[in-house]
Simulated scan of single mutants.
Amino acid sequence: MNLPGITIHKLIDQLTQSPFSFALYRLPWTDEPILVLQEEGKTEILGNPTDLNGKRGFVLTPFHQTQTHPAIIIHPDKVAHGWGNISQVLEDFASARNITSAGTIITEKKITNDEEAKIEYEQAFSRFITPLQNKAFRKLVLSRNYTQELDITFSPLSAFIRACNSYPRMMISLCHTPLTGTWIGSTPEIILSGHETEWHTVALAGTMPMQGETMPTEWSEKNQEEQAFVSEYIRQTVKRFGSKLKEKGPYTARAGQLVHLKTDFHFQLKDTSHLGDILKELHPTPAVCGLPKEETYTFILRNEGYDRSYYAGIIGWLDPQGDTTLYVNLRCMNIAGHTATLYAGGGILPSSTVETEWEETQQKMNTMRNIL
Results as ranks from 00 to 15, higher is better:
I152M: 10
H338Q: 14
I34H: 06
E295F: 05
T43P: 06
V89M: 06
R369S: 13
I73W: 01
P292W: 07
A94T: 01
R162N: 13
Q268Y: 07
K139M: 08
S21A: 15
G41M: 09
S126D: 15
S273H: 13
E116W: 01
T263M: 05
N303P: 02
R302M: 11
I348H: 03
D319Q: 11
S273R: 14
P4T: 12
A94D: 13
P4Q: 11
E39F: 00
G212M: 09
T153F: 11
V79M: 12
L11N: 12
A203I: 08
N53K: 06
L279S: 04
Y311N: 08
G276L: 04
I45C: 08
Q224T: 12
P209A: 12
G185Q: 02
K239E: 15
M215I: 07
D51S: 14
I86L: 08
Q321W: 02
E198W: 04
D13A: 11
M210F: 01
I6N: 14
I371Y: 01
S352K: 05
I73M: 03
S243M: 11
A253Y: 11
H75D: 10
E122S: 12
K135H: 14
L269S: 01
I129W: 00
D51K: 10
E213C: 07
N303H: 15
Y310S: 07
S193N: 10
I99R: 01
P250V: 11
F93A: 11
S351I: 05
S273C: 08
F160S: 04
G276C: 05
L269D: 08
P320Q: 09
Q148C: 06
Q227C: 05
N223H: 13
L3Y: 12
F58I: 07
T325D: 15
S166A: 13
V328F: 00
Y146M: 12
P188L: 06
M210C: 07
T107G: 05
G47F: 05
G305W: 02
R169N: 14
L35C: 12
M365I: 06
T177Y: 01
L3Q: 14
I6E: 15
H176F: 04
G316P: 01
P131T: 08
P156V: 02
M215L: 14
T107E: 14
Y343H: 10
H176G: 06
A117D: 12
S166D: 10
G345C: 07
G345N: 06
H81F: 09
W219G: 07
G347Y: 02
Y233G: 05
I191D: 02
G345L: 03
G41N: 08
P286H: 04
H69I: 00
S101W: 09
T177D: 04
F93S: 08
T180C: 14
L15V: 06
P250A: 09
I129P: 00
L179R: 04
E226R: 00
I335E: 05
G84T: 11
L90G: 05
L261F: 05
I184C: 03
E44M: 06
R97G: 03
E247A: 06
T237G: 03
I184Q: 02
T16R: 02
T177E: 10
N165K: 13
A96I: 12
M171G: 03
L301V: 01
E232C: 03
T50L: 12
P4F: 10
K270H: 11
